[in-house]
Amino acid sequence: MDFSYYPGCSLHSTGKEYGQSVELVSEALGLKLHELNDWSCCGATSAHSTNFELSVALPARNLAIADQKGLDIMIPCAACYNRFKTAQHNLNHKEALRATITAGLDDNYSGKAAVRSPIEIFHQDIGLETLKSRVVKKLEGLKPVSYYGCLWLRPSDICDFEDAENPMMLDEIMTSLGAESRNWSFKTDCCGGSLTVSKSDLVEKMVGRLMRMAREAGANCLVTACPLCMANLDMRALGEDALPTFYFTELMALAMGLKGPQNWFGLHNFDPMPLIRSLQLL
């Protein structure tokens, strides 16, 4: 299976271990990722908060590059996914906007390339049975709560992901790896997103509550699929309630016996190695 691949800015810096684990797991599962040629930033929250046209034009350039290949685009970052989906929705439904914005692009925009999440690709296209068959080290003793956050899911008519109030794909992937996925009611609550930089105190409170609720659910870690959520969960949780957080692809790689997890865990702010060692997973 071939996909266009948009890593986005985070996967080259703060979310390095996410980028590397997505790429390694994809390769191991037989997916061929073609990084979008000379891609640029999606504009994130800052563009849509200050300039609507810019927030459509920035993803539009990347969408047009993808349209040339005609493959589905895998986007591991929830924020980029959301901006691409929203831009595509606007371009495909608003003719005048589409005309002005696409006129300035080098490539022809057709709006056909499907924007997709690696969660969905691994869960649906690869499938849980295949995932199970690839597990060499069951993640026994690991009790994650799955944290989806906002941007994969909402607004639901544009994101077209899964049940916006009770998504299950991450939970099911964790179960197929042999982990004991814990149920909780906070999987789609907001972590504060990019306010983390300008309003750190608010975000600390939001993350603190998520950690307390994860403990309440009997979890010993959290699992996420968003570099922004990861940054907040990993760096903004203070005090003794804090739990380690993993990218779901790090855990896939761990269960599949791939080389990499130890290095990636070393990049986390909150060290997950004591937990991993106590469960003899490495």
Binding site: L151, C190, L195
Partner: peptide
């Protein structure tokens, strides 16, 4: 506003 899109959903 954190642009979490909960309200519109």
């Amino acid at each position: 506003c954190a642009s979490c899109e909960t309200c519109v959903t």
